[in-house]
Amino acid sequence: MDVKDLQYSELPPRAQHVLENFFPDQEAIKARQEHFRDVGPRDADSEGDVEILDGVEFTHHFVDAPGDHETVRFHYVEAGDPANESILFLHGIPDSWYQWHHQMAALASEYHCVAFDLKGYGQSEKSPGDYRHQAAAEQLVAALDLIGLETFNLVTHDRGSVQGDYIAADHSDRVLRYGRGEQHLYHFNPVLAPQADLFAEAPFTGLMNDPVEFTVFVYTWIATHDLPDDEMRRVIQEYSYPGINRAVPRYFNSSTFRQEWIERRLRLIPAWTCPVMILEGYDSKTQPREFYEHARDYIPNAKDVAVRYIQAGHFWSMERPDEVTALLRELLAMPA
């Protein structure tokens, strides 16, 4: 297949209706932003710091991997015994490793759970450099080499799925199973991705300058259930570390959603060989569930393909944590 043969997918009628009220009421956004206006930055972690979440110990680590300006410093958090089978979690925007803390806590008694802050996010590197997702994914793999994570189950969300797609394709011998969520797969229509232009222009418009305003805007827009206040506060804090507002837009100025979709269709999807579970919010505004109904047809070389919907919007790992954990257990039971 050639690029010229790729066609945007027609929107299902339900998705067309969703687009009529795509963005939430501005007054509702402002009221929620004011509710969290007092949230301030969180102190940065140090190597070996431990915190307790859901009754489980989480340990903070840092690793300097080869990359831009000689090294790229990644922040990651782990829970569970490193001797057990590993799960690597990758987050989306505007999140961090914390997006997966409920699932990590629930699975830590059986698995070695590791969650990274992607480059540009959280407490990871934010210096200028190569922010193409393929390059960032390779730098992340270099970090995995340094910490000794040879094989792993891969669980991703949103922008983390873009990098996960490269890891599953280019390092297929290392990925045991791939749980992939909230990112365009085979079907794509640019009207569902207005955030691409919004985020690319963020350095000029100041869209990301206020972490409270930006984080609450995104969560109010595409979540269908409000998070508990303490969790929403932590999400805001994780997006408040200095430099995030400058670093994250670099991704959106290094590529486009169309370019990602072309690479996915022509090269990445056919290279996935492990079992794959597609995870999507049943009420996701930007990822119509109808686009994933026949995913087996589009992932021809995977050992197995399953599609599962969560009764939530875009941020289902936080909106419906127990439901997501149950689905991850189903993924982990798929023969590798």
Rank of each mutant, 00 (worst) to 15 (best):
A142Q: 02
A143P: 08
A143H: 06
L144V: 05
D145I: 01
I147S: 08
L149N: 05
E150C: 03
E150K: 12
T151V: 10
T151W: 01
F152P: 01
N153H: 11
L154A: 03
H157T: 00
H157V: 01
H157D: 01
D158M: 06
R159L: 12
S161P: 09
V162C: 08
Q163R: 14
G164V: 05
G164P: 05
G164Q: 10
G164L: 07
D165H: 11
Y166F: 04
A169V: 00
D170N: 14
H171K: 08
H171C: 01
S172P: 00
S172V: 00
D173C: 02
R174H: 01
R174I: 04
V175E: 06
V175H: 03
L176W: 00
R177C: 05
R177K: 00
R177I: 06
Y178F: 14
Y178I: 02
G179A: 09
R180S: 07
R180W: 01
G181N: 04
G181D: 02
G181H: 05
E182Q: 10
Q183K: 08
L185W: 06
Y186V: 11
H187C: 12
H187K: 15
F188N: 01
N189D: 10
P190H: 11
A193R: 15
Q195T: 14
A196Y: 13
D197K: 15
D197E: 15
D197W: 14
L198G: 09
F199P: 05
A200V: 05
A200Y: 03
A200L: 07
E201N: 15
A202Q: 05
A202S: 12
A202G: 07
F204L: 15
F204W: 15
F204D: 14
F204C: 13
T205H: 14
T205V: 05
T205D: 07
T205A: 08
G206T: 09
G206H: 07
G206Q: 11
L207W: 00
M208T: 02
M208V: 05
M208S: 03
M208Y: 04
N209I: 08
D210H: 08
D210T: 09
P211Y: 03
V212C: 03
E213V: 15
F214V: 02
V216E: 02
F217Y: 11
F217W: 13
Y219T: 14
Y219W: 13
Y219H: 13
W221K: 09
I222L: 08
P228K: 07
D229M: 12
